[in-house]
């Protein structure tokens, strides 16, 4: 496991101290909170890993749409937050931030995942694909084109998530049945109610991809 860098308080000012130094100066102060999870299971010892201020930054490398990005993130930042607010990849949407709507669906190593339930630090080392990553230059990918042709959306806000769920399905199963299509997008809410056109788009994208 990589050694984490730490920056206290305000990442925009860019002042940075080491994690050891930060803990020494700030102690385990009032704003400290207990954090658990795999990134903290470092061999550095319990005393240092037990508590950590919530806004200490870690350096990670995210691989998004084929490009590496070196980033400073708080451990509590979601992948969704980093994609949208740090990298400016706003095609991935936030509908609920708690794993209920699927608007934030991205592919992590080809598998659809809710980016709002994935911490940025968890995605380190994985291949993250967002809706922008399906474009070939300015040309739409086959699933995106099928959504246009079948009018598989209205407001379009759930659409990137729907597209990523279909893309994930087709990467695993190039010839899905109607039931498999429904299951694949059943974690993506569409309040505009475009589902039946989404089913059609998924089926036609599958056909076009097989050609």
């Amino acid at each position: 496991m990589k050694k984490k860098q730490s920056i206290a308080s305000d990442h925009r000012r860019g002042w940075s101290i080491s994690r050891r130094g930060f803990l020494a100066s700030a102690g385990t102060g009032a704003v400290a909170m207990a954090v658990s999870g795999r990134i903290f299971a470092s061999p550095m010892g319990n005393k240092e890993t037990a508590e950590m201020a919530p806004d200490v930054l870690s350096k990670i490398t995210l691989h998004v749409n084929g490009h590496p990005h070196d980033l400073l993130v708080e451990p509590r930042w979601t992948l969704l937050h980093v994609l949208r607010e740090t990298l400016g990849l706003t095609g991935t949407k936030e509908g609920c931030g708690r794993g209920e709507c699927g608007a934030c669906t991205v592919l992590i190593n080809d598998i659809p995942r809710y980016a709002c339930l994935t911490l940025a630090v968890e995605a380190e080392g994985a291949a993250v694909t967002t809706v922008e990553g399906l474009l070939d230059g300015e040309t739409l990918g086959p699933v995106q084109s099928a959504f246009v042709e079948e009018d598989a959306f209205q407001c379009g806000y759930c659409t990137p998530g729907q597209i990523m769920s279909v893309e994930g399905l087709l990467r695993k199963n190039p010839d899905p049945s109607m039931d498999e299509i429904r299951m694949a997008v059943s974690g993506n809410l569409c309040r505009c109610g475009a589902y039946s056109h989404i089913f059609k788009a998924a089926a036609s994208a599958a056909k076009n991809r097989r050609k």
């Binding site: 084109s145 959306f153 990137p160």
Partner: peptide, 11 residues
Amino acid sequence: AYERVSGTAVY
């Protein structure tokens, strides 16, 4: 449609 499916539409 392009903006809405490509992710380039700025909501």
